[in-house]
């Protein structure tokens, strides 16, 4: 559906996107993850034809970007970050303007589509309100209706849930999942749980480069296999604790973390992939007079991968 090859964007000397290559299959929900300033928005802006890439190629349904920009734009629905809309217009006027620009000119069809979108995005009660009076969540929904106007094959959403309250986030997510059953959706976020809950595939970007690209399930499995354990102890100092764990001969790699309390030691232990070493650690520590404050297996797999990948490159 979408092929991105060696996409690069420079702002003067600053490289915002550095040779990104991606391919998105039809019907896939792709999450573009990355810390702030990683290049997510720039990538999406190039994909939607708003920015011209410094170099690289974009192909959408075998159509090349600069030559067929108008056709490609017609295939896509795009919701920019924080949904910038015309503040002085009424929601209805705005949406019918968008409909006309997107080629939905027949008044009857236009009205029918506006009704469908109003139901889908929950806009029925606010159609005749000026956009400037709407809350952020409502504006976001108008933006979403804008993006879905012509029922496009590809939907691109830039941080669709940023700045919304938990209820609104849940609503927007359910809309995305609903659309994602039939459409190709690409959305960017820096909220991991969101990507985990919504996406089929996750691409992590850091400093303009792709640092991970896999299905959500496989990324999670990969992280869980690392068998990461967090241990917090009261009693020993960091050095003694690390030495103690190393002496267990279980092939553990131990790294110290910043403790929550001053009188504690907190470490991260990477165990062998095929064995849960928590019982061994517990039994060994039982022999001492140290107190175990925490002994947990890492379950927030994506968060860990994200932190690891985005920190390694800083």
């Amino acid at each position: 559906m979408i092929e991105i090859q060696d996409l690069t964007k420079y702002y003067n000397d600053f490289c915002a996107v550095d040779h990104i290559s991606l391919s998105v299959r039809p019907g896939e929900i792709l999450g573009l993850l990355g810390p702030n300033g990683a290049g997510k928005t720039t990538t999406l802006r190039m994909l939607t034809g708003y920015f011209k890439p410094t170099s690289g190629q974009i192909l959408v349904k075998d159509l090349h970007m600069p030559e067929h920009t108008l056709t490609i734009k017609a295939l896509m629905g795009y919701l920019p970050e924080s949904a910038p809309l015309y503040h002085n217009m009424l929601v209805y006027d705005y949406l019918s303007y968008v409909a006309r620009l997107k080629g939905l000119k027949d008044p009857a069809r236009q009205l029918e589509r506006l009704h469908t979108l109003a139901d889908l995005c929950g806009l029925s009660g606010i159609m005749h309100k000026p956009i400037v009076t709407l809350s952020k969540g409502l504006k976001q929904r108008v933006g979403l209706a804008h993006a879905m106007m012509t029922d496009p094959e590809i939907l691109i959403l830039d941080e669709p849930t940023s700045g919304l309250d938990p209820n609104q986030i849940a609503e927007i997510r359910s809309i995305i999942r609903q659309i994602g059953q039939r459409k190709t959706v690409i959305f960017s976020t820096h909220i991991l749980s969101e990507a985990e809950a919504t996406c089929d595939r996750i691409v992590i970007i850091n400093k303009g480069k792709v640092v991970a690209d896999d299905t959500t399930t496989r990324l999670k499995q990969g992280a869980l296999q690392n068998n990461l354990i967090r241990l917090a102890l009261k009693g020993p100092d960091v050095k003694t604790a690390c030495q103690f764990l190393a002496d267990m001969n279980l092939n553990l790699s131990v790294s110290a973390l910043t403790p929550d309390m001053e009188d504690q030691v907190r470490v991260e232990i990477q165990g062998p992939p095929d064995r849960d070493v928590r019982s061994d650690i517990y039994l060994k520590i039982k022999e001492t007079d140290w107190i175990i404050m925490e002994l947990t297996k890492e379950t927030q797999a994506l968060e860990h991968i994200f932190q690891k990948l985005t920190r390694e490159n800083t």
Binding site: T48, P80, S82, P84, L101, H146
Partner: peptide
């Protein structure tokens, strides 16, 4: 300034 330029330019208009 408002950012609607981005919304406008990503619609099928040149």
């Amino acid at each position: 300034n408002v950012g609607s330029y981005e919304t406008l330019l990503t619609m099928p208009v040149s």
